[in-house]
């Protein structure tokens, strides 16, 4: 079984929203119709997006971390939004596990959005149907694209490679390795939805400096016994640094 998914590395996400804008650009230009906005330049702009980046502050000043948190549909392995759909417009593909909405069968009852604990579904304000992340299903299988570009638009746009795309059921895939090696986790595990998208946590980058590393033992000045530092009045190579 294949389960395509995104793995999002919170350790390197810088919150630039490039994934948001590239997602919107791709999905508003596609064959499925525009992803509409209302009053985009008015006083109260609104619109449907498949992907949002939110920012959280963790901790108490001064020990705080700013966490940028991209969220789109998690393509749950047991999606609660699918069985509640009265028309069958919301479905999970057996071949790759992508959860999709058939826009031609959706009646816009919004019940699936109630059934999603993650708030991943948004009604298109013009088409009046439920929309959600498609994992760029119209890109990832497009034979006309170079193989390297058969990825979701957000993954290609990410400048820090915080977004990985692949099959989490394949133990040798890059996403599975990333989940294993970097303690990838799922959101709200308490509801048993088994989200396919995973998040990689923040990692500390420890710098261990031992006392003997503060002074270069092989420093030529030290060898020449010119340490400690000569006075500023001494001549130097650049007239700024004394050594």
């Amino acid at each position: 079984m294949t389960q395509l998914a995104l793995v999002i590395d919170l350790n390197v996400c810088v919150g630039c929203h490039a994934c948001v804008t590239s997602c919107k650009q791709w999905n508003t230009s596609g064959s499925a119709g525009p992803l509409a906005d209302t009053e985009p330049y008015g006083a109260d702009p609104s619109g449907a997006f498949f992907n949002r980046v939110q920012t959280f502050e963790v901790g108490e000043y001064p020990n705080t971390q700013t966490v940028h948190f991209p969220k789109s549909c998690l393509h749950c392995e047991d999606p609660p939004c699918v069985p509640v759909c009265p028309t069958g417009a919301s479905y999970k593909r057996a071949e790759d596990g992508i959860v999709l909405v058939d826009y031609d069968r959706c009646i816009g009852c919004k019940y699936c959005s109630w059934a999603c604990p993650y708030g991943a579904r948004e009604v298109d304000p013009e088409r009046k149907v439920m929309t959600k992340c498609t994992l760029c299903v119209d890109r990832v299988y497009d034979q006309r694209l170079p193989v390297a570009e058969r990825k979701p638009a957000c993954v290609l746009a990410c400048p820090t490679s915080a977004r990985l795309f692949g099959d989490i059921h394949d133990p040798d895939s890059g996403v599975s390795q990333a989940i294993r090696d970097h303690a990838g986790y799922a959101l709200m595990p308490e509801w048993g939805t088994h989200p396919s998208n995973h998040y990689l946590p923040r990692r500390k980058t420890p710098v261990r400096i031992h006392a003997d590393e503060l002074t270069r033992v092989d420093n030529p000045l030290r060898i020449d016994r010119q340490l400690p530092k000569p006075p500023k009045s001494d001549p130097s190579l650049d007239d700024v640094m004394s050594w």
């Binding site: 929203h17 920012t55 959280f56 963790v58 966490v67 799922a186 709200m188 308490e190 923040r202």
Partner: peptide, 16 residues
Amino acid sequence: TAIGIKHPRIVQKSMG
């Protein structure tokens, strides 16, 4: 549990 970070104090600064 919503964002998967174990810290008692988490404040949203931007909803995006």
